[in-house]
């Protein structure tokens, strides 16, 4: 187990380093000058050169990359002030170190992700179990067609329809917005409810289909047959025998989905004007704000890679037949 974790962590670090390098160098292809942004309107060539020097922009790109990566662990000093340990650079469009913006934005993304994960996991797996329990009969057909349609819905359509119906039409709630849960849990809940439900629709379909097919497969396995033969009740067979076998692939996909959501659900955040990491990334692309973009890229990439490792490790716990080499 330890060897497995060590090997996978090393691999993950290599991948994160490569992706950060690719992002950094590609973004330097963009002819933008962060110094100009901080320089303001009455900018002279001399002033620009000074800022260039202060920011280290006069150095070659690989050196800048090195400073950027080293800064994450050691902190950096800019002309505008010190940027302490997890220093992902200084953003001139936001006028503050990137890490501050990330810390501001992350709770929104976290709320969105966890809330919708609860919804799509319970609803999706629930539908799938019902469909599998009534295999071939109308509940199965109903939930299977439902998941086919849900799978074809787009957040940018359903989200706007949901806003039009529930916010402007029926006035059931206010426009979705993020309120910190620590300040007002009720507002937090109502503010995020529509985004949770809409984001879940896309995933529910997938989980319904997967749970159904896994359960159907498990129910025809020999050990389930044996359990039935020795006279165990339907419920015991269904939940204790078939469900355990069906669990592993669902956990895998769930981990991967969760990992990719932590980097920000761009379209959802955009549709509902939620200012999470995804929205931050889109805005920083618009302003060619490289440090911010790099930070979001690193975080979401790390989330994906970590999720993959966690999933593989979890596999061994759920399914004792799996051995980690």
């Amino acid at each position: 187990m330890l060897r497995f974790l060590a090997r996978r962590t090393a691999g993950a670090l290599v991948i994160i380093l490569l992706i950060s390098a690719i992002t950094f160098f590609l973004f330097f292809a963009l002819p933008s000058d962060p110094a100009r942004m901080s320089c303001g309107k009455n900018c002279t060539a001399d002033a620009l050169a000074v800022i260039h020097k202060n920011l280290g922009l006069d150095q070659p790109v690989p050196v800048q990359y090195w400073h950027y990566m080293a800064g994450i662990f050691t902190g950096r000093d800019f002309s505008v002030g010190h940027c302490s340990a997890p220093c992902f650079g200084y953003s001139f469009s936001n006028q503050q170190p990137v890490w501050g913006t990330i810390v501001d934005r992350f709770p929104t993304t976290l709320s969105l992700t966890l809330g919708s994960a609860v919804v799509f996991l319970t609803v999706g797996v629930g539908f799938g179990m019902i469909a599998a329990a009534f295999q071939g009969r109308w509940p199965d057909k109903f939930f299977s067609s439902l998941s086919l349609i849900a799978n074809s819905l787009q957040i940018y359509f359903v989200g706007i329809i949901a806003l039009a119906v529930f916010v402007t039409g029926l006035h059931w709630m206010d426009n979705p917005a993020y309120y910190p849960i620590t300040e007002n849990p009720a507002k937090w809940f109502t503010g995020m409810l529509i985004p949770w439900l809409v984001l879940s629709i896309i995933f529910v379909a997938n989980y319904t289909r997967m749970t159904r097919s896994q359960m159907v497969e498990q129910l025809s396995e020999d050990h389930v047959c044996t359990a039935r033969a020795k006279g165990l009740g339907h419920r015991t067979v269904f939940f204790r025998y078939a469900w355990r076998g069906a669990l592993a692939p669902i956990v895998t996909i769930f981990g991967i989905d969760l990992g990719s959501l932590f980097g920000g659900a761009i379209i959802t955040e955009f549709t509902f004007s939620l200012h999470g990491l995804g929205r931050l990334a889109v805005d920083s692309v618009g302003q060619t704000d490289l440090p911010t973009l790099m930070a979001v890229m690193l975080i979401s990439c790390a989330a994906i890679v970590v999720a993959n490792i966690v999933v593989d490790a979890a596999y061994a716990f759920i399914d004792p037949r799996v051995r980690l080499a």
Binding site: L26, A29, L30, P31, S300, V305
Partner: peptide, 27 residues
């Protein structure tokens, strides 16, 4: 393939599209 799969897909689309634009034409 592993490396490319580790790219957050949607985010990369958003981030790299302007880069490719810039490769073709000056801003």
């Amino acid at each position: 393939i592993d490396l490319l799969l580790a790219f957050p897909q949607q985010l990369s689309f958003v981030a790299f599209t302007p880069v490719v634009y810039a490769l073709f034409v000056s801003p």
